[in-house]
Design a protein around this nucleic acid. Structure first.
Lengths: 183, 183
DNA sequence: AGTTTATATATAAATAATTATATATAAAAT
DNA sequence: ATTTTATATATAATTATTTATATATAAACT
């Protein structure tokens, strides 16, 4: 599905693989990420499928770069994907839950220590959603008033992250309490 | 990480690849799933690493089966993994958010229809967590009172699923309202 | 009686993603 | 001055995961 993330960004502007990586790290990172190597591979695949085209650009003080642009065919593919509704729930993988599922044999204090550490991490992440992200989105909304629908969408993804982290922290508090009392 | 799921189950009982698939579908499915083909491959890998051993069992009316058992080395590897605390947040991928992020160009009604359909799916999933799962866990807890610590863990993962779906439905309601009003 | 569904077993091919490695310059820090 | 960090570019090797395919019997349905 990374292909659609790349098509989505190229639909706004031409970009190199490197720039796409930067863009994703700053925007979709909390719900979709990719390694640079995967981005380069996927761009090649998209090019061979005719959904993007690329041309090399010479640079003096840096290695030459390859700029990618979406094609009409790529725009169509993107629009078709967006129009197709999600009809099944995507299974998501939670490593922590897998671990916890098998952790009945761990000692009480070991477990509590692990869970408290994790709580700190999620609390920090929650703070990030509450502070940094909204500013970025507000700025974007101000400078491009035409993009207000995009801005609503971006804010919805931020809000998801915020709610998710809030849920996670609450669940951890409940879990810590339960283990402290009944273990 | 599938390897640890398999080691975890084999730590309770010897099982075939087929049985492991059934077990996962009935227990960890909502936070960790795998295709049968991946399970077979991973079992081979575990065997070649000495973490499990297997022996074929002849069957009259079915193809012969291969039963896997965890080794001491496998038990050690599992215990080491469980003891190692999670120190970074795992990035998780939400296809729906990726789609929504780029959906600013869709029509208002198209979007609302998609979101309402999705709301129905998540509401159903929430119902499942509230009804089916707790019974299974209670039964297990009753028949094996010794396993109460495991039972607490399994209940915690169920509760995570419940909270997650609740959060998702609430977020969808908020999103639907926002788009209905401001789009 | 014939078809479908479930049980039971797996392999092969393809796609997706991660980890490791490689090159080269500019800017910042020590 | 020298080292480190950041910018900028990517490829190769490995691991993880999905999709497609294959075989065979029992049980249930039509």
């Amino acid at each position: 599905m990374l292909k659609y993330a790349l098509l989505g960004f190229l639909n706004y502007d031409n970009k190199t693989g490197y720039e796409l990586k930067q863009t994703m790290d700053r925007s979709t990172n909390h719900f979709w990420h990719a390694k640079q190597s995967q981005i380069y591979q996927t761009l090649k695949k998209l090019a061979s499928d005719g959904l993007v085209v690329s041309h090399p650009e010479h640079q003096e003080s840096r290695p030459d770069r390859r700029v990618y642009a979406i094609t009409d065919s790529g725009k169509k593919a993107m629009a078709a994907w967006l129009a197709k509704p999600v009809t099944t729930l995507e299974p998501n993988k939670q490593l922590l839950l897998l671990k916890l599922f098998f952790s009945g044999g761990l000692g009480k204090e070991t477990l509590l220590t692990q869970l408290r550490l994790l709580r700190k991490l999620h609390e920090q992440q929650l703070d990030l959603y509450n502070t940094e992200s909204p500013d970025v989105i507000k700025q974007h909304g101000k400078s491009n008033p035409e993009l207000s629908r995009d801005t609503i969408m971006w804010e919805r993804t931020r809000r998801f992250g915020e709610r998710h982290e809030k849920m996670y922290v609450d669940w951890l508090d409940e879990t810590i309490r339960m283990i402290a009392e009944h273990f």
